[in-house]
Amino acid sequence: MSRLHVVSGKGGTGKTTVAAALALALAAEGKRALLVEVEGRQGIAQLFETEALPYEERKIAVAPGGGEVFALAIDAERALLDYLHMFYKLGSAGRALKKLGAIDFATTIAPGLRDVLLTGKACEAVRRKDRTGRFVYDYVVMDAPPTGRITRFLNVNDEVAGLARIGPIHNQAQAVMRVLKSPETAVHFVTLLEEMPVQETADGVAELRAAGLPVGGVVINMVRPQVLDEAAVEAAANGRRAEVARALAHALERTGSGGRAPKGRTGLISPPAGPADAVSADPFVEPLLQQAREHTERLALEHRGRGEIARLALPTYELQLLGDGVDLAGLYRMARELRKQGVAR
């Protein structure tokens, strides 16, 4: 079982939300998980409805079964001060450098240095042990940069180790890469069943494999329910109004909502009351039929996307679309679903 879970994905796929749900899922049954943010967006604080995270590990949630989730927003400047103190014993001198602006200057002109510090801090949390020799955290979950940058972000220490042949920088870079390229680490991709996110996921997996970095699984997020059965989908594709109207009428009856679909579930307009044959002839049913056709086209697109993801030969998990948005209750629902599908095994 991997202990460092790196979560990446194309922008807009919900990677921060999935990372938070994954941390809750892994922390269940008495475990301790650290949820790490590296992009400075304070997305974790917003999801857990808490104040902005400082540069310190802070408990933000209790997982089912008594586990605990801590969070850390890694700041590159503070991480560099930690690094200078740890390896060069520059305590007060490092703080003086910060006051002079040298720290900010260094992390700005050398973006690679920033990535070294961020990954190094996360790996330090993975390796950290208490006085009894037990790991402080059972799992560390990183809300990482997007798919297009993830391989360079994780592999930067390899480049640094090659540039600095000896000394503490070389040793630190090698120690980080030993974690990142080991079974302790798994890099997961979050995607939607849409063409661009699926393609970026496939490209990201290929890049990680080429770099020798461990790929975990694929989380298909915001999956929409299939409103129509296969016969109705085929009827909608071929424009058979009466059959589609009957199928839609049955679908709305199954909702138990008096002829109107629940908000955020199907997105379909409820048809006028009456027999299905009469509904099919009603002019008001045309917008509904148009949505049925669009739903059919989306199902075909999603089917192709699932096929592309299946070809990656990776563990795959699915999370349903939460129609009213993601709140704390929604995060716990997502965590339960991930555990149910075996993500924490």
Rank of each mutant, 00 (worst) to 15 (best):
V136P: 03
T147G: 04
Q172G: 12
S92W: 10
Y88T: 03
V190P: 02
T119P: 06
G120W: 02
P168Y: 11
D115S: 12
T107V: 14
K181L: 10
Y139G: 06
R95P: 05
G120R: 02
I150E: 05
D115W: 10
F153D: 06
Y88D: 07
V140T: 08
R131A: 00
M142P: 02
F135A: 08
E184I: 11
T185N: 02
F153V: 09
L113W: 05
F87L: 14
A164I: 12
N155I: 07
D104G: 10
P183Q: 12
R128I: 04
F153E: 03
V141T: 04
R149D: 14
G133E: 01
L192K: 10
A102T: 01
G167P: 12
L163H: 14
Y88Q: 11
L97T: 00
A164C: 12
T132N: 13
A122C: 06
P183Y: 10
R114S: 11
S182C: 10
D158M: 12
D115M: 08
H188G: 02
A161D: 05
L192M: 09
M196G: 09
D143W: 08
M86L: 13
F87Q: 12
K98Y: 05
E159A: 14
F189R: 09
T119Q: 07
K99G: 11
G112Q: 04
R127K: 15
L180E: 04
V140S: 03
P197G: 05
K89D: 13
V126P: 01
A144I: 09
T119A: 07
L113M: 13
V156P: 02
L100Q: 09
F105M: 04
R134T: 02
T119S: 11
F87V: 12
M142L: 14
A102Q: 01
N157P: 04
K89M: 12
A125D: 02
R127T: 08
L193D: 03
D138L: 03
F153P: 01
E184F: 10
A106V: 03
A164V: 14
T107N: 02
D143N: 05
E184C: 09
D115C: 05
L118V: 01
D104M: 03
R128C: 00
A93V: 13
M196C: 05
D115H: 13
N155P: 09
L163N: 15
